[in-house]
Nucleic acid binder design. Structure first.
Lengths: 237, 237
DNA sequence: CCAAAAGTGTTCAAGTTACACCCATGC
DNA sequence: GCATGGGTGTAACTTGAACACTTTTGG
């Protein structure tokens, strides 16, 4: 629908001195697994400042791309996670003049979510140095990625508390205990099982499925899914 | 403290084909006055697409500036509002490839707040076509500024509801009725006077001043100020 | 029959909502 | 003395927090 409008005039290219910066997109991609939050890191090797460091997947925009398109492409090429289930939200744009010692780079930061269950076996593991790191191991990253990761985490936690965003970290079908655990992992707080179930029921955001999860040596658990795949702004926790 | 690190190597300039875009900063500057929200607009005259249109104050970044510094400079030069009391928050970065028909421009959008009382008489009025517009008049703006304004307003409203951001729209000293009116203007809802005062008192975010506002033909009103100039995240409304 | 997680209600405290009258001043 | 906005309390209701036992399955 919307496209570059052609006019009789030639398109003026901005003068060289105003095209001083390159644009980058960097992504903090999170998943939850085994009771912990993980973030995807890639090796960074940019002498002389950054050798054998880790960083968030990211890189430069190409001329035909939006920042969001670049973020998804770079997740694919740099961190080897290519999945249509990735949820992406813009976070903040970092424009400090000296944030990259090699020159002026303005980075649009994103945070992204993916359910562990949506990852292939290959994606769950390590690929060309790119791997899932616990938060406590993700320190001393290259560039300003420590700050970016901190902003991303704080945004993730606050958005989970007043939206239905948690669904982007869960498989399509899940039990109430799994939902509760996901909230506990992200918020870092334990939740009362009975109060939690009452609240979720009143919110009406779930659809009860006929099937149950069987196989444990205990009572089978009812399965649920989200009634809407849209992330809604409701007081959740 | 942090500055561009010099190394033995020469600083590599990114290749031309990656420096395709120019960076812009655009600002939705709000104030409240006379029971309404106003936004500062400037005339836009960029043939062939935008002639005699209005837009948000904004423009291109210079090489030595962060986006935030550019936003403040452009408020000064384009909308003629230069005030140390301006509160500025980054909003969203707009990177659609065709958002500016003249070429690739990536814009970092900001929203900004200023108390009407902090404006000089000159700044309250019109200056070289730049003026305070009501929200209902601020339609059909140039570029994607309609969208930017909508995002800014929605962010303003939601942040006012869970922070003490309202202080950035109020004079240093104010009455409880003025505070209540500010909330009513921003949220578009009427508030019960007694419940409001109870809540504000319990939050403990105000400091009661000794002075009163006299002069009306009615009982003088106690004056208050915010206990802290930091914007805190507390459930306010 | 034992271990393990699933599922289910009640009580009390706190917070939110609705609502009406007297007070202090200027004219 | 009257018009104007400033200031104050209580009762009903809703929400949130704390807390323990029975159920269903697999082995």
């Amino acid at each position: 629908m919307k496209k570059t409008e052609k006019t009789g005039d030639k398109v003026k290219k901005a003068p060289e001195h105003l095209r001083f910066a390159v644009l980058a997109a960097d992504v903090a991609l999170f998943t939850i697994h085994d009771g912990k939050i993980f973030v995807r890191l890639i090796p960074v090797n940019r002498p002389p400042n950054y050798v054998k460091r880790l960083g968030l997947p990211g890189g430069l925009l190409l001329p035909h791309e939006t920042a969001e398109e670049a973020a998804l492409r770079l997740l694919k090429t740099k961190s080897h996670i290519a999945d249509e289930h990735i949820w992406l939200e813009q976070l903040y744009t970092f424009s400090r003049v000296d944030r990259d010692p090699r020159g002026r780079v303005v980075a649009v930061g994103y945070f992204a979510l993916i359910p562990w269950s949506a990852l292939s076996e290959r994606e769950q593991g390590e690929s060309e140095g790119s791997y899932w790191s616990t938060l406590s191991d993700a320190r001393n990253l290259a560039y300003d990625h420590d700050e970016m990761l901190a902003v991303a985490l704080s945004r993730l936690r606050s958005r989970v508390a007043y939206t239905t965003l948690i669904q982007k970290l869960l498989p399509a079908e899940f039990t109430l205990t799994e939902l509760e655990e996901a909230y506990e992992i992200v918020t870092g707080r334990t939740i009362d099982k009975r109060n939690f179930r009452k609240k979720i029921e009143k919110l009406g955001i779930l659809k009860e499925l006929a099937r149950k999860r069987e196989g444990g040596r205990h009572r089978p658990a009812r399965l649920y899914c989200f009634a809407s795949s849209t992330v809604k702004e409701i007081e959740v926790l």
